[in-house]
């Protein structure tokens, strides 16, 4: 990507796994509901999403009863529409979020404008991902290969790969850029820093 500057990347902080959502598990429960109307799996989904939806909805609706209605509506849509979830096209959290956002949108429209037209599923379809099929397929392949390569690297290097783009130049690059000897760059930088320190009143070290 870069021609002139190095793309040095480092990791900011080690990753904390305990925060992570167990996506494969959620996905499995949702599929069990879709394929075998598995009540146990649904109860698990309810335990995970129910209280969270309640809290999110509580933020948008004036009272607890309406927030509960969002939970009721969202979760019953999850039960009734689980077969529309396609795990190849996105995470379970994304699908449930879409269902919840749509329920919320229609309910707010009903409360504010007394309209019961349920437009949300036309605007944000729950049956398909927004990403077109070809594209998600490409992305999938690409990222899989890349991750595969990354996983082979030693831990320290993996972290380097997953950091940020660092755009600072190296002394060598600056020397090439200005067409000056490296030694000149080094001494100029030393002088400049000494001057800066003096200006800031810390020239005594």
């Amino acid at each position: 990507m870069q021609t002139n500057l190095r793309s040095k990347v480092t990791n900011a902080k080690p990753s904390i796994m305990s925060d992570k959502i167990d996506h494969p598990q959620l996905c499995q429960w949702l599929n069990a509901v879709a394929t075998s109307r598995d009540k146990q799996a649904f109860t698990h989904l309810f335990q995970f999403f129910g209280p969270k939806i309640q809290r999110i909805a509580r933020n948008r609706f004036p009272n607890e009863a309406q927030a509960s209605e969002v939970v009721q509506e969202t979760m019953s849509n999850v039960w009734r529409k689980a077969h529309l979830f396609n795990k190849d096209k996105g995470a379970a959290t994304t699908w449930v979020y879409t269902v919840m956002r749509n329920v919320t949108f229609d309910m707010l429209r009903k409360i504010k404008g007394n309209k019961e037209d349920n437009l949300s599923d036309d605007i944000w379809p729950v049956a398909e991902s927004m990403v077109s099929e070809n594209e998600s397929f490409d992305d999938h392949l690409e990222s899989k290969q890349l991750l595969h390569v990354i996983e082979k690297l030693p831990e320290a290097q993996q972290q380097v790969v997953k950091g940020f783009y660092f755009m600072e130049m190296s002394q060598e690059q600056l020397a090439v850029h200005l067409n000056l000897p490296l030694g000149t760059i080094k001494s100029r930088l030393r002088l400049a820093l000494a001057k800066l320190k003096m200006q800031l009143g810390e020239g005594h070290d």
């Binding site: 109307r37 649904f42 109860t43 309810f46 129910g50 209280p51 979760m75 849509n77 039960w79």
Partner: peptide, 16 residues
């Protein structure tokens, strides 16, 4: 009581 709500929902076998 989320459990009660979950039971009510799964009592229906209606599929969208």
């Amino acid at each position: 009581d989320f459990d009660v709500m979950a039971e009510q929902i799964t009592a229906s076998n209606e599929v969208f």
